[in-house]
Structures are given as C-alpha cells and as structure tokens.
Amino acid sequence: MGETRHSKVLIIGSGPAGYTAAVYSARAMLNPILVQGMQPGGQLTITTEVENWPGDTHVQGPDLMIRMEEHARAMGAEVVTDIITSLDLSKRPFVATGDSGTTYTADAVILATGAQARWLGLPSEEKFKGFGVSACATCDGFFYRGKEVVVIGGGNTAVEEALFLTNFATKVTLIHRRDSLRAEKIMQDRLFKHPKIQLLWNHTVDEVLGTDTPLGVTAVRALDVNTGAVTDVPCDGFFVAIGHAPASELVKDQLELHNGGYVKVEPGSTRTSIPGVFAAGDLTDHVYRQAVTSAGMGCMAALDAERFLAEHA
C-alpha cells in the first residue's frame, strides 16, 4: 500500500493554470500539492517559440514552464511527479489516487488538466510539429507573414483560424473533407468573401511534405475523397483545426460538462457543479485557449479555493 498525503488544496495539472494556482495558493499559506500529470508543463512544452507571453518578447515554451514550476516551488508549493488515475468527488475530503500508489486527500481540488488539440495522426505531421505544423493560429500565425498557409477543418475553429491567418499570410487554403462547412453562417459568409482565402472541398490531407535541413514544410498532399486524385498544395505552414479534446476523463461522470466535454464553471468564477472543486485553464475554456488566460484562471481558482476554505473551516 502506498502512502496517503493530505493537503488543503490539491492541484491536478501543471500548465500555466496549474502553476499559477500553485503560486497563489502557496502565498495564501494553503500548502498546496500540485500533481504534474502525464505532460509536466502542459501544451507549452511542445511549443517552441512564444511571443505573446507578457514581459517576454521571445521565450521558448519549455523554458517558460520551467520558470513557472520554479516559481511555484519557491513560493512553497509541493510539486509531485505523478499521474492521477482516479478522483472521487462524492465527499470531502476529496480523494485522488496516483499512478505511484499514493493516495491524495484534499479539502479543495483545482482541476487544471488542460485540453489537447486533435491531430490527424500522420507520421509526417508529427515530424514537422513546431516546424511548420501547428494547431494554434493565434500562437504561430505571426511567423507566416508574407507566406502561404493551409488550414484543415470545417467548423468554427477552422474558419476562425483561416480568417485570422489572413492578417499575415498572402494566401490561405482551407481544406475540408465535405462540400459544406459546419461553422456558423455569419463566419462562413466572411470566409467566402475574403480575397485571400481559397477553399478545397471534398479533400483530406494525406501527407505533409517538407525539407529536412532545415526542417520545414513546403506543401501538403491532398486526397480527393471522391476520386482518389492527389494534389500537392504548396505552403509554408499547415494548421490543423479539427477541434480540441478537453482532458476531463477523471470527472466526466461527476461534474457538469458542456461543449463536448469541457468542465462547466459558474460565469465569472472557477466554481464547478461540486462545491470545493474548481477548474481553470483549457479544461474549461473552449474559446480563448491561451497561456495568459489559463494563468489568469489559475489565479482565480486559487482565490476561489481560499474563500471556500475560509467559509468551511
């Protein structure tokens, strides 16, 4: 049997939301334990250049997350390398089980497990991630000023990304596997009217083409779903916009979810449908999905938890 650890606040997840929650709850003398999870540092650890984090004109994603972890530790948070495999929110103290065998009990829980972009699953896509392949136009669009890009997808995310990329790229090709989009009508109208955007209907992407030295994208290979014909679409960047998957498996049968699995919080707060359980960052956010908004929500979650614990002492 593993040991049992109790804390006033248990933080699950270690992206900007989790580490910011740790900083604030540690400063409030709540002695938080933060369990890092499968990907310590979250999605920013697989992001190379970050140019929109306030105070840093240019920073590497992994370096930023190392600094956040160091900051949380310096404030007094305990950062644990473990993965939470089950979580019981039916009674307080809440009980979490770690893959290590450790049991964590807590008077309040902050969920910051994030969301992952859905990918096509191509080996060539994996090869060029961070070197021409991206799942975030607002993160990486700036790098394609004066260049041609391709977006794949047919929902609101894909249309938003395509329209956003027109601020930088000379041409945006949107590839969709059907002959109509799922996006809202008003957004489709904007897309169809934009002179920089070209649509390629009834196609999927079969392969990302590029160079090895330096590593970079030169084109995507598109496959006609009806005829099987292959077309190579030249581009410098390829944006995958087929949705995100929130990491809500631990709580999917316990907390109220919406919009395809995102944890629902009360407007203007991080309170979930269970008192004492708070959620922050991309796990709750299907709109912005930025490091800085996640960090802001991490701050809110720690303050919400502090108030909750003061009222239920």
Results as ranks from 00 to 15, higher is better:
residue 110 I to Y: 02
residue 297 M to L: 08
residue 104 Y to A: 00
residue 249 E to V: 10
residue 282 D to Q: 12
residue 136 C to D: 03
residue 82 D to Q: 11
residue 299 C to S: 02
residue 42 G to I: 02
residue 58 H to Y: 14
residue 163 L to K: 05
residue 72 A to L: 06
residue 78 E to L: 05
residue 82 D to Y: 07
residue 30 L to P: 04
residue 174 L to F: 01
residue 163 L to M: 07
residue 28 A to K: 08
residue 4 T to N: 10
residue 16 P to N: 11
residue 267 P to H: 12
residue 227 T to D: 10
residue 4 T to R: 13
residue 182 R to W: 05
residue 173 T to S: 11
residue 251 V to P: 07
residue 225 V to K: 06
residue 169 A to Y: 11
residue 305 A to P: 11
residue 269 S to F: 08
residue 255 L to I: 08
residue 49 E to F: 00
residue 97 T to M: 11
residue 219 A to F: 08
residue 240 V to D: 00
residue 164 F to P: 03
residue 68 M to S: 01
residue 311 E to A: 15
residue 273 S to R: 04
residue 235 C to M: 14
residue 110 I to D: 03
residue 298 G to K: 07
residue 166 T to G: 00
residue 73 R to E: 14
residue 245 A to W: 09
residue 292 V to T: 15
residue 255 L to S: 03
residue 256 E to F: 05
residue 205 V to A: 00
residue 230 V to P: 09
residue 23 V to T: 02
residue 125 E to K: 04
residue 43 Q to P: 09
residue 183 A to D: 05
residue 48 T to Y: 04
residue 258 H to G: 13
residue 249 E to R: 14
residue 88 D to I: 04
residue 207 E to F: 07
residue 284 T to C: 13
residue 224 D to Y: 08
residue 156 N to D: 15
residue 287 V to Y: 09
residue 120 L to R: 12
residue 234 P to N: 11
residue 286 H to K: 09
residue 74 A to L: 09
residue 198 Q to D: 12
residue 83 I to M: 11
residue 7 S to I: 00
residue 96 A to F: 00
residue 123 P to S: 06
residue 267 P to Y: 10
residue 202 N to L: 13
residue 3 E to G: 14
residue 210 G to K: 07
residue 21 A to C: 04
residue 206 D to R: 15
residue 24 Y to F: 12
residue 131 F to Y: 15
residue 134 S to G: 00
residue 24 Y to H: 07
residue 293 T to M: 14
residue 126 E to S: 14
residue 303 L to C: 07
residue 40 P to R: 05
residue 105 T to R: 10
residue 215 L to W: 09
residue 60 Q to C: 04
residue 6 H to L: 00
residue 84 I to S: 04
residue 45 T to V: 10
residue 232 D to V: 06
residue 91 K to I: 04
residue 69 E to T: 02
residue 265 V to A: 00
residue 143 F to V: 02
residue 146 G to S: 08
residue 40 P to K: 03
residue 242 I to V: 13
residue 101 G to V: 03
residue 171 K to H: 13
residue 127 K to V: 11
residue 73 R to L: 13
residue 216 G to D: 02
residue 251 V to D: 05
residue 143 F to C: 00
residue 69 E to H: 13
residue 232 D to C: 08
residue 48 T to A: 09
residue 283 L to V: 15
residue 311 E to Y: 10
residue 255 L to N: 09
residue 194 H to G: 02
residue 263 V to P: 05
residue 286 H to I: 01
residue 12 I to K: 09
residue 125 E to I: 00
residue 198 Q to K: 15
residue 199 L to A: 01
residue 206 D to C: 06
residue 71 H to C: 07
residue 10 L to H: 06
residue 129 K to F: 13
residue 254 Q to L: 05
residue 165 L to M: 06
residue 86 S to C: 00
residue 207 E to R: 15
residue 70 E to Y: 02
residue 26 A to S: 12
residue 192 F to A: 04
residue 72 A to E: 05
residue 27 R to I: 01
residue 43 Q to I: 13
residue 19 Y to H: 07
residue 142 F to E: 01
residue 5 R to N: 02
residue 292 V to P: 08
residue 182 R to Q: 14
residue 167 N to C: 02
residue 47 T to A: 13
residue 17 A to Y: 03
residue 186 I to F: 13
residue 105 T to P: 04
residue 80 V to E: 05
residue 17 A to F: 03
residue 103 T to A: 00
residue 152 I to V: 15
residue 311 E to S: 15
residue 262 Y to E: 07
residue 242 I to W: 01
residue 213 T to P: 08
residue 215 L to K: 15
residue 183 A to R: 11
residue 165 L to S: 01
residue 254 Q to E: 10
residue 147 K to F: 01
residue 279 A to C: 00
residue 159 V to L: 14
residue 126 E to I: 10
